[in-house]
C-alpha cells in the first residue's frame, strides 16, 4: 500500500480486530489512533509512572523490557492512548487472548493508565 497514512490506519484497524495482533506488521513501533468506544474519562486519567513501574514487573516476565518481540509482542513506547485502548479491549473481552484477559481483567482504570504512562516512556 503506497499511502503510508492509509497503511498505518489499516494496520491499526487490523491490530484492533485481529486475535493475533502480533502477526500484523508495523512500520512504526506502535499502532496509530484507533477506533474505539472507550469512555473519554478513562482516557483522560493521568497515570502514575512510579506505580506503573511496579505493575510493569508483572508484564516483563513475558514482554521484554528492551522491546524484543519474539513470540510475544512488544509493548514499549506505544502512545499511552493506544495502550489504554488495547488493555481495555482485553479487560472487556473484546480481544480474545486468555492470558491477557486475565492480566487486564484485574487491573483498574488507574492501574492501566499507570502502566501506559510507564511503558510509553520506557527507553532501552
Amino acid at each position: 500500500m503506497a499511502d503510508p497514512v492509509a497503511r498505518a490506519d489499516l494496520m491499526a484497524y487490523l491490530r484492533d480486530w485481529s486475535d493475533r495482533p502480533q502477526d500484523i506488521p508495523e512500520a512504526e513501533p506502535t499502532a496509530r489512533k484507533t477506533e474505539h468506544d472507550l469512555d473519554p474519562a478513562i482516557l483522560a486519567i493521568q497515570g502514575d509512572p512510579a506505580y506503573g513501574e511496579y505493575l510493569s514487573s508483572e508484564c516483563t516476565t513475558c514482554h521484554q523490557r528492551d522491546g524484543s518481540d519474539q513470540g510475544i509482542p512488544s509493548i514499549t513506547q506505544w502512545p499511552a492512548e493506544d495502550f489504554v485502548v488495547a488493555m481495555h479491549a482485553y479487560k472487556r473481552k473484546l480481544r480474545p487472548h486468555p492470558v491477557m484477559q486475565m492480566m487486564a481483567g484485574r487491573l483498574n482504570n488507574e492501574e492501566i493508565a499507570a502502566l501506559a504512562a510507564y511503558f510509553a516512556g520506557l527507553r532501552n
Binding site: C62, H63, S68, D69, G71, I72, V99
Partner: peptide, 17 residues
Amino acid sequence: KATYEESLGWYAGITAD
C-alpha cells in the same frame, strides 16, 4: 502452535527478567 510460540517468547522474556 501459537501457544507453543508464545512459550518461546516467555522463555526469552523471563530469562532476561
